[in-house]
Nucleic acid binder design. Sequence first.
DNA 1: CTGAAAGCGCTAACAC
DNA 2: GTGTTAGCGCTTTCAG
Lengths: 346, 346
Amino acid sequence: MKGKSGSQVRSLDVARLAGVSRSAVSRAYTPGAYISDETRARVLHAAETLGYSPNAMARSLITRRTGIVGVVSTDLDNPFYAALLQKLGTALQKAGLAPLVLFGDENSTDHHITQMMSYRVDALVMTNATLSSRMAVRFAAQDKPIIAINRLMAQDEITSITCDNRSGMQSVVDHLADLGCRRIAFVAGHPDSSSSRDREDGFLRQMAARGLSPAGIVTGHYTHDGGAAAARQILGGDTLPDAIACANDMMAFAVMDVARKEFGLRIPRQVKVTGFDNSGLADWSSHALTSVDQNVDEMIALAVEHIGAAVRLEPRAPHHIEVPARLVIRASSVDQAQGGEGDVPC
Amino acid sequence: MKGKSGSQVRSLDVARLAGVSRSAVSRAYTPGAYISDETRARVLHAAETLGYSPNAMARSLITRRTGIVGVVSTDLDNPFYAALLQKLGTALQKAGLAPLVLFGDENSTDHHITQMMSYRVDALVMTNATLSSRMAVRFAAQDKPIIAINRLMAQDEITSITCDNRSGMQSVVDHLADLGCRRIAFVAGHPDSSSSRDREDGFLRQMAARGLSPAGIVTGHYTHDGGAAAARQILGGDTLPDAIACANDMMAFAVMDVARKEFGLRIPRQVKVTGFDNSGLADWSSHALTSVDQNVDEMIALAVEHIGAAVRLEPRAPHHIEVPARLVIRASSVDQAQGGEGDVPC
DNA sequence: CTGAAAGCGCTAACAC
DNA sequence: GTGTTAGCGCTTTCAG
């Protein structure tokens, strides 16, 4: 108990106990290898009694694949990204891969990416962080895929998977315009992000198409605090908008809070509010937020499929995929949307 | 460009370009190794031009440390756990470690733990999942620490770091009793979890100490839906409680929604609601939830310190640490707690 | 179907 | 300070 503690069980130990060679042990763990059922059983039994599991690091040295996928994430305070990470991680596990997660703090990302590269991850997934071109080139030179979910990146080496942000936002404008709104304000996300630009673009286009002009456009940086500040600016102006469309849910939650608490407004009667992401909280009755569903499950399925192909050494060329977005209407834009309670009242 | 693509840069390549031996390259990356500043500079320069980074897998084979920490997490829908994961991951990175994250789906955990063990992680952190004793023993036999954050586990091999759940809940009861509440109901978490049991225990003890008897105890399984169901049961009874204390924030949010929307109750005037976790959402004005802060930062600092010690081969014996919990009072229990708005009104 | 031998990329003794 | 040598635990030809 004492002497052996800390020592690792090696394939050789298993081989000896099972009375076979190390090759046999290896084959027992390799699907589709030439090995008799009997030997495999003997090996597995020996492994079980010894508490052996193959050393993935040593294996990766020779197979040149680690089974590890680097995931760069940030902002788990945003429930949308939290859910995205959990779903992505689960999907990767199901595909036999393991996510090595890096929480990017915007500036130090490159350094951490180097760390991930030293673990020879089979693929890199960025959920809302960015990647320097230098790193992208270096990584892609290894024929390993880089995938950006929910963000279109400038580099050619990167596969982007987004929802159709433009038309998603257009459907919001249509919805509000159909309800009779004439003065619609927009709370944009982060100026640097493609998703925010696309959503804003969709907003502007459809406003023009409906013959409306925006009742103000303010940046909220995709954060709760930023959304609150934007709301104060918009609602503190001369004329009240009849709707505020937000580029994500987090900002919409803040906008609703400010509109109610600080301006005493009723939602949706006096002002309608919409978000984008359809995060879990949007469905809580305290928020009941009309939002645009990004179809996360499909984005993730595509990402995992893309990674799987690369791991099987059938790499696909980088490309941009868009999944459809879908408007989900709730009580923040429509009276009684939830079944007769009227106006989200508390 | 074409022929070399996909091939990995090895230390030998760097050594040749720099005109030194592979050992020199190795030493250039080992802090505190005997190497002249000049050769280190030459090596680093060569590495830079070749795009080299040391292969952590190969290194781990000989150093017997991977720098990877396995993190078992679940339920990122709960903002408390999402924030916990992000903070933990960030703290590990800062300590030079990388988190390999596993999302446990309760039943298949053991299988996935085996996968993590095959990566020879230096430590295992469980945030709210459980671990079978068999796995715990097997892992601990490698002299690697297992740490449970926010959950006390039965196994001796495991270091548990929790907040003082009992006294945290007691302070809630004191707070409500001081406000004059006499009929306080309790929404418990998951029966299997120590945190829920401890919080319930604290509730019962302090109720008794204040000469009060519980106005109903219902299990909400720590989930939003479970909390909603519990609220319906409690509020649908004969006599209305004057307060509902919940074992976590998620359930409290649901309780507030049900109380307002389905029973038309005003909070805190007709019924006060409290949570536990002090998650970020508790501070939003739409919730303004009185809650108990778990002191996550301190729990994480302790966890990372414990892991760091083990990685430096100075293992500490498993033990149980409790950090103090702190009551945070907001408008869900006290009128005008937020500065004169009265009763959380929408 | 099985075993022997070679080597993946790296670090750690040990000489110099 | 530096290079040489010998493995770390595993998979994979290649014979048998």
